[in-house]
Design a protein around this nucleic acid. Structure first.
Lengths: 109, 109
DNA sequence: AATATATACCTTGCAATGCAATATAGCAAA
DNA sequence: TTTGCTATATTGCATTGCAAGGTATATATT
């Protein structure tokens, strides 16, 4: 079992939360996630995910010029994206509760 | 994003924790997981997972007779399985911390 | 005996998604 | 020009959750 498997589906919610706070572009997002302690984040994860979210209308995107390199694609949350985020938060709370309950009796030994 | 995607890789650790507490058979495991609040658990998930764990030598299995149906395949944790469980717990704690930080919960657990 | 019900394990085929590797390109400084 | 950082995108693969379907055992009911 790799660490990456644990992330499946969970990153999505975290990305939505970050975007809600402030519009971001992909490259920036990868750096933020790493700062939050999510290890080993590659562009092969970030960009397909953002494009999928755009396709699902959870986010919108606009290109803006950069003074330090090629243009950046900034993502913002849609109403649908906000709703998805709320649902994620609910599910995350439930998951935490269930997992911690299972692990609790294990640590009682 | 479905609820099932969030489970990827996380169920494994929970199953190891349950098995460590007491040897279980697949059918029983499914019921326990449901009791812990993990919804929608099918045998199409449980059995392939247990067989994979056996292949990876995280668990051992022995058949025992049942008085209420066909024989049961009981699973126990190996040393390797215990080590895997400890690693899962560590990763789970880290994941919780990262996600909760992103979501701006204050995690005291 | 035949049928129904609950228990119990397994397989097939599919869908979702994280990610390494790779490609392309803008911009600035040496 | 070359180097290096910035920035987006694509391809192909591996993993794994799960619905659907199959097989088999034991007990109770008809």
């Amino acid at each position: 079992m790799s660490s990456t498997q644990m992330l499946k589906g969970i990153i999505d919610g975290c990305v939505l939360a970050i975007i809600k706070d402030k519009e971001v572009y992909g490259y920036e997002l990868a750096e933020k996630l790493e700062a939050y302690g999510f290890e080993s984040f590659s562009e092969g994860t970030i960009y397909p995910m953002l494009m999928r979210m755009q396709r699902e209308e959870l986010v919108t995107a606009t290109f803006k010029k950069s003074t330090a390199g090629p243009r950046r694609k900034y993502y913002s949350l849609t109403q649908k994206g906000e709703e998805e985020l709320q649902q994620f938060i609910y599910r995350w709370k439930q998951l935490q509760q269930s997992v911690n309950q299972v692990l609790r009796f294990e640590s009682d030994d």
